[in-house]
């Protein structure tokens, strides 16, 4: 292999990184060399052939911070450079045998309680960490037949500061918030985070967990 073809190959490799969606990890070099020779039509042709299934971690290629392929999201394959340097990608993470709830969603609270992860409390190293607030609030369910909600401050203040929620989203006084499930589903109150960045509303009993008094059931 002479120097000019090697340079060509290098350029081709870079191109393939930009259009990484279209290629499988295994065929990168060969594909990239081909694309270089017949550039625009080839990329148009090849993209639809190799479809990426977002639910199959092994079909997704992850790039490291320098934009180089760092590996695929298959937990059965050996750890890539990226996982050694930067930790697991979320998609590979969810497939890697983490504790899950009965709906198959990663149980982040369990991860914290079992000390599987210990995230930094702030990006600012100078900031002092406030200890979690150990206060459960019972929020009575409006309907007569639904269990009441136990809201754990502890797990929430583990992740968040109190001014994330108070007083804009929740007035910090018992019973002062007219919450409804319909509103939460629409994205108010708990729905500001749950269903977006926190676990979704799929498992009703995760929150509605405190049985009402039998006396109040009529």
């Amino acid at each position: 292999m002479n120097a000019s073809s090697f340079r060509k190959l290098k350029v081709a490799l870079l191109c393939s990184l930009v259009a990484v969606i279209g290629y499988t990890f295994a065929g990168t070099v060969a594909d990239a060399a081909q694309t270089k020779r017949q550039q625009p039509p080839a990329s148009g042709k090849e993209t639809p052939q190799q479809q990426i299934d977002p639910n199959d971690p092994s079909s997704v290629i992850y790039l490291d911070s320098a934009g180089k392929p760092a590996g695929i999201g298959d937990p059965n394959k050996p750890a890539s450079e990226a996982s050694r340097r930067h930790g697991w990608h979320p998609q590979a993470l969810s497939a890697a045998g983490l504790p899950k709830d009965r709906y198959g969603l990663v149980d982040w609270a369990k991860l914290v309680r079992q000390n599987i992860i210990s995230p930094k409390h702030s990006l600012d190293p100078g900031e002092e960490e406030a200890p979690p607030l150990k206060m459960d609030v019972v929020i009575p369910a409006k309907g007569d037949f639904v269990d009441d909600v136990i809201y754990p401050h502890e797990m929430h203040t583990y992740w968040l500061k109190s001014d994330v929620c108070h007083p804009q989203i929740f007035v910090p006084a018992r019973g002062a918030n007219e919450m409804t499930m319909v509103g939460i589903v629409k994205g108010d109150w708990c729905g500001r985070c749950h269903g977006k960045v926190a676990f979704p509303l799929t498992d009703c009993t995760k929150c509605h967990s405190a049985p009402k008094n039998k006396a109040s059931k009529k």
């Binding site: 369910a141 409006k142 309907g143 007569d144 037949f145 639904v146 409804t180 499930m181 319909v182």
Partner: peptide, 11 residues
Amino acid sequence: SRSVSMGKAGV
């Protein structure tokens, strides 16, 4: 049949 409870829940 649960219309009273439904009313409380806002549905």
